[in-house]
């Protein structure tokens, strides 16, 4: 594997609210290598967005705080970095694209203004040069009439176009790492296909590592090399895209994939995981998923499972994959197959 770009080590981001401490991110470890696209999937409330905001140090403080863990970006621990240092990194070496292209552009400034600002903040360039670069970036992300669009305002563009502008801005300083938080969720499928195509292209051409946060397993299959599945603030499974989608090991990933309606086949009844996603809580004993899990046994309610290694560097946070529970695993496997 090539060089490590980002490594999260046992990251804990907690929110301190009136109703107590909430461990939104509860011990997350993720590695992203050079040129790799890593997907983080999970339902709402699983902590995937808070994870990405933690990397950028954009967690509002208070109420949020990174209480523990390391965020190693090319060997530098960002959890300890000063705000001044972060300002240098953000938008330069690490860029981020948000879900809402409608709200993440300033409506009072032209597209060019905003692009040029980002470029000049990090690179020594005259206004003229920066403007030229802005036009180039817009061309790169496939915006027609880039020369004119530079002087237009965000409201004059469609959702897909605005997301392209966001990507152009994020890519303008050749970041090592691009964090994309649900970049296509607000877009229509035909536009989504265009944007995914563009991101894949940039990843291949510029060798930018991408950390993609999404809830859509279809998007993951399209673009990611590796997938991390999150549930209630923890990583529950990790593996290559193929492995996760074809042979999910953790009961939650299995349930999630089974409950998707398939476009090519039709089953009479959809599989569904009973219950709802729990709210993260301090001092919870037992596996977070146990109350909804069909394989749960005594141990699941009394002990917290660790991430157990599987073959090929995969990991699963489930007692079924603990060697001590060897027998149970076989029993459960038989259940899954049937």
């Amino acid at each position: 594997m090539s060089e490590l770009v980002l490594e999260l080590k046992d990251l804990h981001t907690h929110f301190f609210t009136d109703s107590g401490e909430i461990p939104a991110v509860d011990g997350v470890s993720i590695k992203v290598h050079e040129g790799e696209v890593v997907g983080v999937v999970g339902e709402s409330g699983s902590g995937k967005s808070v994870t990405s905001l933690s990397v950028m140090q954009l967690i509002p403080k208070p109420p949020g705080e990174i209480v523990n863990g390391e965020i190693n970006f090319k060997g530098e621990n960002l959890a300890k970095a000063s705000e001044k240092r972060m300002k240098k990194l953000r938008g330069n070496e690490i860029s981020m694209i948000f879900q809402e292209p409608m709200t993440s552009l300033n409506p009072l400034f032209t597209i060019g203004n905003q692009l040029i600002e980002a470029i000049r903040l990090h690179q020594k360039m005259t206004k003229k040069e920066a403007r030229k670069k802005a036009v180039n970036m817009l061309n790169l992300v496939g915006i027609p009439r880039a020369e004119e669009i530079v002087d237009e305002y965000p409201h004059q563009l469609s959702g897909g176009m605005r997301q392209r502008v966001m990507i152009a801005m994020a890519m303008s300083c050749d970041p090592e790492l691009l964090i994309a938080d649900e970049p296509t969720t607000a877009l229509d499928v035909t536009i989504q296909a265009q944007i995914l195509d563009l991101m894949r292209d940039l990843n291949e051409k510029e060798n930018t590592a991408i950390l993609l946060i999404t809830h859509d397993l279809g998007v993951v299959a399209e673009i990611c090399d590796r997938v991390v599945v999150m549930y209630a603030g923890q990583v529950v499974e990790e593996g290559t895209t193929r492995e996760i989608l074809k042979e999910p090991q953790h009961p939650y990933s299995q349930g999630l994939i089974k409950s998707l309606p398939k476009i090519h086949e039709r089953e009479q009844k959809l599989y569904s995981i009973p219950g709802v996603v729990p709210k993260p809580k301090m001092g919870r004993v037992g596996c977070n998923f146990a109350p909804r899990c069909e394989f749960a046994f005594d141990r699941c309610f009394n002990e917290n499972p660790a991430l157990y290694p599987l073959e090929n560097g995969r990991q699963s946070r489930c007692f079924l994959h603990d060697d001590k529970e060897g027998k149970v695993e076989m029993h459960a496997e038989a259940d899954i197959r049937s």
């Binding site: 897909g160 499928v189 296909a193 265009q194 299959a221 989608l245 994939i257 998707l260």
Partner: peptide
Amino acid sequence: QALLSAVPLPDPDLQKERIILKGDV
């Protein structure tokens, strides 16, 4: 045809001809 081909499917083995529509609605 384009709409159906644009839907990302959670199946990494599926090879499909994707029709990418140009432009916006």
